[in-house]
Every structure is written in C-alpha cells, then in structure tokens.
C-alpha cells in the first residue's frame, strides 16, 4: 500500500513536471502546497497564516483554504490535482477565504496524463475581504487523447479595494470538453481580471462563460479570452460585464482564431445600469493574420513554425 502511494505520488510529480511545474516546490518548506490524486490527499504543506483543510469525499476532495487577516503569503502556493487512471471522476470543491489585508498567489496544475474518459469538476468559491488580493493560475494538461471533460465553476466576491485575478491556461495536448464558468461580484474599488487561454484541437469543445458584476463604486473588471482553434474544434465564449455602480469600469477583450474546419462564436454582453459607469468590449474571430505569419516566414521560419510562434504569443 505504502509503495503504491509513493508510486502514485511519483507519477503525479512526473505529470506535474510535464505540464510545466517545478516539483522542487513540494519539498520546499516555505512553499505552501497540496497534492490530490483522485480522492486522495498525497501531500500538504501549510505556512504561517495559511490554513489548508482537505476532506476526502467519495469522488474527490473538499478543500478549505484560509489566509488569515493581515497575512501576505510570500511564495505562491502550489496545487496539483489529477487523475492518473484512464477513467474516473474527480470533484474538487474548493473554498478560499482571503481575509482582510491578506494576500496570496497560487498556481494549480491539473493533470490527466492518461485520460481516455475523465470528468473533472472544480467548484470554487472565492471570498476576498477588504484590501486583500488573490492571484490564481490554473494550468491544465490533458494528454493527447482528448478524453477529458473539465468543468471549472468559480463564484466569488471581491471585497473593497481588493484584487482577484484568475487565469486558466490549456495549451499543451488536447482539451476534450471544457466548460468554464465565472460569476464574480466586485465591491467598491475592487478589481477583477479573468484570463482564459485555450488551444483547441481535434474535436475539442470549449465553452466559456465569464461574468463580472461591478457592484461598488469604482469597481473594475477586465475579461480577456484567447481561444485558438484548429481541426474541427468548436468554441463559444460568452463574456458579461454588468456595471451597477458609479465610476465602475469594465472591458471585455475576446479573440478567437479559427483554422481548418473549426467553428467559433463570441458573445460579449455588456450592461450598464448606472449613467456614470462605462463598459467597453472588443471581440474578434478570424483566421491568423497573414502579415504576421509572412513576417516570420521572411525571417526564415517555415509556415508551421510561424503559426506556432504566433499562437504561442496569443496564448502567453
């Protein structure tokens, strides 16, 4: 049993590394971390002012993370979630409480290296107090078979003068099915930034629904999505910013690049219910810019290399 756990840990670490993570983080006592494989917690490291409370469930793990009032966590927390077998379901319910004047950065790698049929659900509830910050990055690695269904839903509230940034990245390997949802309220002087970067291939399906609600004066939101599609993949991006309060500002910037037989749809919805608020949006769907490609070809890159360079830039 013990060796099995050690093997599982080693395999998770291998997948973590494959997805661009630095495994050294999990042995550094200063770096807060958690490793969850299926419904098992394989490792956990707390630091001063940060409490991590995992509870295994039938299909996954419920995790409560609290950053205590006035604490700024020095090193970004490292999270590793995944399912190693070909098939399975993993449900992670994560609640993050960033108390007043507290802050943390976190990078999460979700790895399904052998996926043939895996469902991965993440339900996040993010609560930021006042004058606090939380920068969250989630990087996915799904292998090359496209057998993953990933459903990350985030609900949150950003307190006064607080900052919440969330970035979702999936650019290596296949996507499978992806269904992202955000619904975040922003209070007075708070700031929300949501970034989604996805490269869809094969028959991948991408659905992104991002919603920012500017409820306090001078609240701000930026929703930026970049989806690159090839083969016969599909994507739909719905970005919503509702501005309810005076001097609140929002911007939606959505770009989808279609290649081959892929299909993309973008729906920016901006709502302003206060005459002193302002929300802008830009949405573009199109093929890769031929001038960009030809510029790189004129530097000696082949067409494939040029496309790769342009796409990597868009998804950076």
């Amino acid at each position: 049993m013990a060796t099995k756990i050690i093997d599982e840990y080693a395999e998770m670490m291998k997948a973590y590394e494959q997805s661009g993570g630095n495994v050294g983080e999990f042995s550094n006592p200063n770096v807060p971390s958690i490793v969850i494989s299926g419904n098992k917690v394989l490792g956990k490291n707390e630091v001063k002012g940060l409490i991590i409370e995992p509870t295994p469930t039938k299909d996954g793990v419920d995790v409560k993370i609290t950053v205590k009032k006035g604490t700024k966590i020095l090193y970004p927390m490292a999270l590793c979630f995944g399912v190693l077998p070909k098939e399975g379901v993993q449900v992670i319910n994560m609640e993050a409480y960033i108390e007043d004047e507290a802050g943390m950065n976190a990078v999460s790698h979700c790895v399904f290296p052998n996926a043939e049929h895996i469902v991965h659900k993440m339900n996040y509830k993010v609560h930021l107090g006042n004058h606090s910050f939380f920068r969250y990055k989630e990087i996915h690695f799904h292998g090359d078979k496209g057998g993953v269904e990933v459903v990350p839903y985030t609900e949150g509230e950003v307190g006064e003068n607080s900052y919440f940034e969330s970035t979702f990245t999936l650019k290596e390997g296949r996507v499978g099915k992806l269904d992202i949802k955000y619904d975040v309220d922003v209070k007075k002087g708070g700031k929300l930034e949501l970034y989604s970067k996805v490269w869809a291939k094969g028959n991948d399906e991408v659905n992104i629904e991002e919603k920012g609600n500017l409820k306090g004066e001078e609240a701000k939101a930026l929703i930026k999505s970049r989806v690159v599609l090839q083969d016969n993949s599909h994507s739909k991006v719905l970005s919503v910013v509702n501005a309810y309060a005076p001097y609140s500002r929002g911007h939606v910037d959505c770009m989808e690049v279609v290649q081959d037989d892929s299909v993309a749809e973008a729906v920016p919805v901006v709502g302003v219910s206060n005459s002193l608020a302002k929300v802008t949006h830009e949405a573009a769907i199109g093929s890769l810019d031929s001038k960009e490609i030809e510029t790189l070809e004129a530097r000696g890159l082949t067409e494939e290399e040029a496309i790769k360079a342009v796409v990597s830039g868009l998804l950076k």
Binding site: K291, T295, A298, G300, L314
Partner: peptide, 20 residues
C-alpha cells in the same frame, strides 16, 4: 521561407504587431 533561407528579407513599411 525559401527566399528568406536563401538570404533575403524584408522590413515592412508598416510592420505587423504580435501579441505576447
């Protein structure tokens, strides 16, 4: 690409922008 590999290139009058 073949022309570039042979040793010629062009600096555009209005160069393209590259995100990222």
């Amino acid at each position: 690409t073949e022309r570039a590999k042979l040793g010629m290139t062009l600096a555009w009058q209005t160069p393209a922008s590259f995100e990222g």
